[in-house]
Amino acid sequence: MWPLDRSPVGTRRAWRKREEMLLRVRGQYGPEWWEVVPAFLAVLLVIAVPVACLGWLWARVGWWAALLGAAVFSYLVRAGMRQRRVLAARRQRRATYFSLDQVDTADDRGFRAIIGRLLIRDGWANVRGVRVNDAGVVHLVGVGPDGRQLGVAFERGVEQIGQGSGSRAALRPVGGVPQLPTTPARGPRPLFIVVSSGTFARERVVWAARHGVRLVDRALLQRWAAGEDLAVLLDLGLDDVRTDAS
């Protein structure tokens, strides 16, 4: 039998083996070559088969057939990527939902965080908090799929205090229209929303209609948090824009 090949202690080879063993123990060594080869062969197959088919069409039929095949292949790839994005958006939508108990027990920051996650789930971009006065009132702002700017203010329903299983936030009623950091000179009209965990009084509804502010009361908030799209709840007409963008 051949003697075991051991590296002398203190050599570079022994140090390398010791470091390799530590990485394996920690699970940080990475995949082995036999774990990478199947994925590499799959990528090679995905690239090689279409190229071979296009080459066969060029040689046996003509350049126009190869060009037509490339167009069909491009369309199929684009359709597959679009379907993948749709499925990913559906999975994200199913994963992002909240109950009214979570809303009721959240503090001010938690309430804003929940609404912010719902907006991001529904396709609104650049959602962030903006402090609007010295009293510490924070509004959420964002940009919609159609380029429309969004301003969101928050209220708590006084009649709902006491419900839920924990401490509640006491957000003050909004005295004016939600504020945006900048006033857009062009583009769609900004969307202003006031979200409440309770219900709005009649005077509040009249004020919102007069100033062009959309109200999301407790009933709409429950549906929104359960997975329905804000654009559908408020009839914003963003379906066509999202279809074109996808």
Results as ranks from 00 to 15, higher is better:
residue 61 V to R: 15
residue 62 G to Y: 03
residue 62 G to W: 03
residue 63 W to D: 01
residue 64 W to R: 08
residue 66 A to T: 02
residue 67 L to G: 04
residue 68 L to D: 05
residue 68 L to H: 00
residue 70 A to S: 15
residue 71 A to S: 12
residue 72 V to Y: 05
residue 72 V to G: 12
residue 72 V to I: 14
residue 75 Y to T: 13
residue 78 R to N: 07
residue 79 A to Q: 15
residue 79 A to R: 15
residue 79 A to P: 00
residue 79 A to V: 10
residue 80 G to A: 12
residue 80 G to M: 05
residue 80 G to R: 10
residue 83 Q to S: 14
residue 83 Q to I: 08
residue 84 R to T: 13
residue 85 R to Q: 14
residue 87 L to K: 11
residue 88 A to G: 05
residue 92 Q to M: 13
residue 92 Q to I: 06
residue 94 R to N: 09
residue 96 T to P: 02
residue 96 T to A: 07
residue 96 T to D: 04
residue 97 Y to C: 13
residue 97 Y to W: 10
residue 98 F to H: 02
residue 99 S to Q: 11
residue 100 L to Y: 09
residue 102 Q to F: 06
residue 103 V to R: 03
residue 104 D to K: 04
residue 104 D to Q: 05
residue 106 A to T: 12
residue 106 A to C: 09
residue 108 D to P: 01
residue 108 D to Q: 12
residue 112 R to P: 08
residue 113 A to I: 06
residue 113 A to E: 15
residue 114 I to A: 06
residue 115 I to W: 04
residue 115 I to F: 08
residue 115 I to L: 09
residue 117 R to I: 02
residue 117 R to E: 14
residue 118 L to H: 10
residue 118 L to M: 13
residue 119 L to M: 06
residue 122 D to W: 09
residue 122 D to A: 11
residue 123 G to S: 09
residue 125 A to D: 14
residue 126 N to K: 13
residue 127 V to I: 07
residue 127 V to Y: 01
residue 127 V to K: 09
residue 129 G to H: 01
residue 130 V to F: 14
residue 133 N to M: 00
residue 133 N to C: 03
residue 134 D to C: 00
residue 134 D to M: 04
residue 134 D to W: 03
residue 135 A to T: 03
residue 136 G to T: 03
residue 137 V to E: 08
residue 138 V to F: 05
residue 144 G to Q: 10
residue 144 G to P: 10
residue 145 P to T: 11
residue 146 D to M: 09
residue 148 R to A: 11
residue 149 Q to W: 12
residue 149 Q to H: 15
residue 149 Q to T: 12
residue 152 V to N: 07
residue 154 F to S: 09
residue 155 E to S: 03
residue 155 E to D: 07
residue 155 E to C: 11
residue 156 R to V: 14
residue 160 Q to I: 06
residue 161 I to W: 15
residue 162 G to L: 12
residue 162 G to F: 10
residue 162 G to M: 12
residue 163 Q to E: 11
residue 165 S to P: 03
residue 165 S to Y: 07
residue 167 S to I: 13
residue 167 S to G: 15
residue 168 R to L: 06
residue 169 A to M: 11
residue 169 A to I: 05
residue 170 A to K: 15
residue 171 L to D: 02
residue 174 V to C: 11
residue 174 V to D: 05
residue 175 G to T: 08
residue 176 G to N: 09
residue 177 V to W: 00
residue 178 P to M: 02
residue 179 Q to N: 00
residue 179 Q to P: 00
residue 181 P to F: 05
residue 182 T to K: 07
residue 182 T to A: 10
residue 187 G to W: 11
residue 188 P to Y: 04
residue 189 R to T: 13
residue 191 L to V: 02
residue 191 L to N: 08
residue 192 F to I: 00
residue 197 S to C: 03
residue 197 S to Y: 03
